[in-house]
Structure formats: structure tokens, C-alpha cells
């Protein structure tokens, strides 16, 4: 019995590894999309002072807030900013990334977050503020919740900066063409500073 079970387990592990590699290889395939992207904006489109907020309460927003501080961009960082926080602000920077833990820590639901963003974006458009959207989580931050938030936000976007791996299915390019906003895709976070600065300087 022991020998048979061992052989059976070995076969199972082998099959499992095979399936795992197949899944990974399928997952790693990137479609050959024609990316209509810019390395950075040719001229500034927004003015300071910026309100930086999160869409999904991930820690990605904290990274952008730090980059903005390093670039000396005048900003206010409020992860759960409301429409009233737009007073005296000239631009809105939204960092998309769904974090269930972040939402729980903030004691809000996904629907609360969507409602907050809807009101915030409506007010920003009313005040003719530029809306900059960033998605820096890459492919792993692409899930149905993040995608729902991104789709909601980019309708009002004036510029989208993302990490190239997140556009594995060409969805960012499609959104850029659909809602007619410039798109910049960077290889990693280190390259983010140039396009981000080009928004204001």
C-alpha cells in the first residue's frame, strides 16, 4: 500500500507541477498590443496645488504622495478625500488600487469607496480641475475591483500613468482610445518621476 501511495503521490505532484507551469506560461503571455503611449506629457496640463487621493485604499497612494513630496509638487494627501477637500485645489490625482485590508482599516465598504469617488470626481469636473489617474500596482493589482474603480475614474481622466505589466491585455490602451486621454506606461516605479513631473512642470 505504501509503495502504491508513494507512486501515486509522485504522479500527482508531477501532474500538478505540469499544470502549474502551463498556467504560469499562459499567465505570462502578453498580447502584442499596439500601445499608443507617450513617454511623458509634452507640456504641463495641471496646476498646483494637487489633491492626492486613493481609489481602493491601497498603500500605492502613499508611494505617489511621497514621490510628489520629493518632486516638490505642492499637494495635500488625503486617502479618503471628500468633495469638500477640493477647495483651493487645482488638480486631482487619483491612485487606483483595490485593497480589502485598506478598506477594512478605513471602516468603509467597496460601495462607500465608489460613492466617495463619484462625488469627488463630479465636483472636480464641475470645478474644471484636471484629473490625473495612476495605476502603479502592475499586473497583480489588476482584479475585478481595481478594474471597476479604474474604469469609473478614467471616464473623467485627463492623463493616465500606469506600469507596463498592468497593460498585459491592452486594456489601458483601449481605455485611452475610448475616453481620449494620453497614456504613459512605465517599466517600473523608478521611471515614474519624469511623466509625473511633466504634468505640472
Amino acid at each position: 500500500m505504501g509503495g502504491t501511495a508513494l507512486r501515486w503521490q509522485k504522479k500527482l505532484i508531477f501532474k500538478f507541477i505540469l499544470v502549474l507551469f502551463l498556467l504560469i506560461s499562459i499567465g505570462c503571455q502578453t498580447s502584442d498590443n499596439h500601445e499608443w503611449t507617450l513617454p511623458n506629457l509634452p507640456r504641463p496640463i495641471a496646476k498646483e496645488k494637487a489633491l492626492i487621493t486613493s481609489a481602493g485604499q491601497s498603500t500605492d497612494a502613499y508611494i505617489i504622495a511621497e514621490i510628489a513630496n520629493q518632486l516638490l509638487i505642492n499637494n495635500t494627501f488625503l486617502p479618503r478625500a471628500k468633495e469638500t477637500d477640493l477647495v483651493n485645489k487645482s488638480s486631482l490625482v487619483v491612485i487606483v488600487g483595490y485593497s480589502p485590508t485598506g478598506l477594512k482599516a478605513a471602516n468603509i465598504t467597496f460601495q462607500n469607496e465608489k460613492d466617495r469617488l463619484t462625488h469627488l470626481l463630479d465636483r472636480a469636473v464641475e470645478q474644471k480641475m484636471k484629473v490625473i489617474v495612476l495605476h502603479i500596482g502592475g499586473k497583480q493589482r489588476r482584479n475585478k475591483w481595481s478594474d471597476a474603480l479604474l474604469e469609473m475614474v478614467v471616464r473623467r481622466a485627463d492623463y493616465l500613468i500606469g506600469v507596463r505589466s498592468a497593460n498585459y491585455d491592452g486594456w489601458f490602451t483601449k481605455l485611452s482610445l475610448q475616453y481620449n486621454f494620453p497614456l504613459t506606461l512605465v517599466q517600473d516605479l523608478g521611471e515614474l518621476k519624469v511623466p509625473f513631473t511633466s504634468i505640472y512642470r
Binding site: 502549474l20 504560469i24 505570462c28 491601497s58 498603500t59 508611494i63 511621497e66 485590508t101 497583480q140 516605479l189
Partner: peptide, 23 residues
């Protein structure tokens, strides 16, 4: 190990993104 589908949940992913930012 990210391409091998390790660390796809919220917190490990946030750690890795923060790690990329902090080099």
C-alpha cells in the same frame, strides 16, 4: 517569484510594490 503566482493577495502585493519603490 511573482511570475509564478506567488504573493497575489493584498498585503504581500503591497509589500512588494513598496519594495520596488524603496529599491
Amino acid at each position: 517569484l511573482e511570475p509564478f503566482l506567488f504573493g497575489r493577495s493584498d498585503i504581500p502585493l503591497s509589500i512588494k510594490i513598496a519594495g520596488r519603490y524603496l529599491k
